[in-house]
């Protein structure tokens, strides 16, 4: 499903491509592996242990829901899984590559090639059409314009919005905007889809639609999904629920 990184972005990408090429050789490698991951913010008195020695493993094809109250460390874990953040200590292996050893640009290339993001606030570009929003990740991958368009339309079709391709985000409902955002995350055919409270801003009918779409992507397209939510009935759509409290996993770990 996932493609090898192309030799773009200069030497960093080249190095990364070699590293990930090796990871590709072992199909049983977990997508996400935390080894005693700690994340500490601040120093001394005001020190906060957002993650306190977390071990976690997520295999290809899983649909993991992450739950926990605010301040439990679930958002920190999410940022870490998405390679937006690095551990203070311990190791985070993404597809067998130790993310701690990568610089900012190399992590950006990992996200570009392997991870799709869906946010609570949709984060579509203002005054930009649905199609252009979906094309955006392909622009960074240097996909030629005609192929970009074709793939973006296909992704919009998958989320059932091909008829709204030319609409700007202001003309779409919340549920439609989130589906455009999902199409944007999917268009690169990522191996991991990261969803941060994807239904947080939606009414209950839309929530169900979005969750059914995510389940469909997971089952029919084999995309690994990791979703943060605070709603238990949303978490139940997943194949497994991991619960965080005070920077530790208290249930759902394997």
């Amino acid at each position: 499903m996932a493609e090898l990184p192309r030799p773009d972005g200069g030497a960093a990408a080249h190095h990364l491509g070699a590293a990930l090429g090796q990871a590709e050789l072992r199909p049983q490698t977990p997508i996400v592996e935390f080894r005693r991951v700690e994340k500490i913010y601040g120093e001394g008195e005001s020190e906060v242990r957002a993650l306190d020695g977390v071990d976690m493993r997520i295999d290809p094809g899983e649909f993991v829901s992450i739950m926990g109250s605010s301040g439990s460390g679930k958002s920190t874990a999410m940022n870490m899984i998405g390679c937006l953040d690095v551990p203070t200590s311990g190791a985070y292996l993404f597809r067998g590559v130790n993310v701690c050893n990568l610089d900012q640009d190399q992590r950006a290339l990992l996200r570009r090639h392997f991870i799709g993001f869906v946010f609570q606030g949709f984060n579509l570009l203002a005054r930009t059409t649905a199609l252009e929003n979906v094309e955006l990740p392909l622009v960074y991958r240097r996909v030629p314009a005609d192929e970009r368009r074709r793939r973006a339309l296909k992704a919009l079709d998958l989320v059932g919005l091909s008829s709204r391709a030319g609409h700007t985000s202001a003309k779409l409902s919340g549920g439609q905007q989130q589906r455009v955002a999902i199409a944007r995350a999917l268009v690169t055919e990522p191996s991991l889809l990261l969803a941060d409270e994807p239904t947080g801003n939606l009414d209950s009918a839309r929530k169900v639609e979005i969750m059914e779409l995510m389940v469909q992507l997971n089952r029919e397209h084999g995309i690994t999904v990791v979703m943060v939510t605070h709603e238990p009935d949303m978490a139940e759509y997943g194949t497994r629920t991991v619960v965080f409290r005070d920077g530790k996993i208290i249930s759902g770990n394997r």
Partner: peptide
């Protein structure tokens, strides 16, 4: 700012 955050999340390099 949020747009920049989104772009960085979906894989834009700082130089881009």
């Amino acid at each position: 700012t949020r747009e920049v955050g989104t772009r960085l999340a979906i894989g834009a390099l700082a130089s881009e």
